[in-house]
Amino acid sequence: MAIDHLKINQLLQRLRSRPYRIYEVKTPHTGYLREFLVKEGTEVKGPRGKWREIPGTPLFTLEREKNLKTIKARVSGTIHNLRTELEGRFVEAEEVVLEIRHPLSQEEVISEFLRETLILITAPETARYLLAPEIEKRIRKEGLGKVFVKPNEEILIMSFMKRETPIVHTGETMVIFRIFFTPQEVVTAGEPLLGLCLQEEVPYLERVISRICEEWPEK
């Protein structure tokens, strides 16, 4: 496979013109929004550290059933549209409280590129998904880009309407190159779950990724 420089350039150009993404921060559940810990325009950080062991910047506190929780940023960026009027009030679940304008990182640009290049397994239904235990074990052991999935092998498990349905790989033998979903979280139908490629494509993909790394240096 030849490197489609044109396509990659177009992608990078598009990302450069709008190099950030807006993340809405919602209340995870009901409760009293006690206090905002950030202001409009505050720079916040997501979880950091080699093992993401340092939690993100505290955003606000939410108290429910005498349990005061600090809601922390999951991504880095700048605070916008802070709804200060909610402070001190009872809020419902999934209420948008603020937005984080998040500049795209190298990793995310790579992810964006892979979404457009890999063969994707998309979510057939809006449901929760899990890797098939066998696949998960192999990925944990060998890492992404090394685990093969054979035709008719169970690759994912869909947890849908209280039932667990296996999703079987239909194509030829391929390598799992990327995971796009978070286990146990609801994925909207049509969103990518996994990105696959042929084994011979792996070196090509790695070359392109290193190119992106050069063009989009980590800040």
Binding site: R64, E65, N67, K69, Q184
Partner: peptide
């Protein structure tokens, strides 16, 4: 005590708050 606490694994395991 009538209150709830959050499991330290709530983030990764989706544990509900415990009474």
């Amino acid at each position: 005590e009538d209150r709830t606490v959050t499991c330290p694994n709530a983030e990764t395991h989706g544990c509900p708050d415990l009474w």
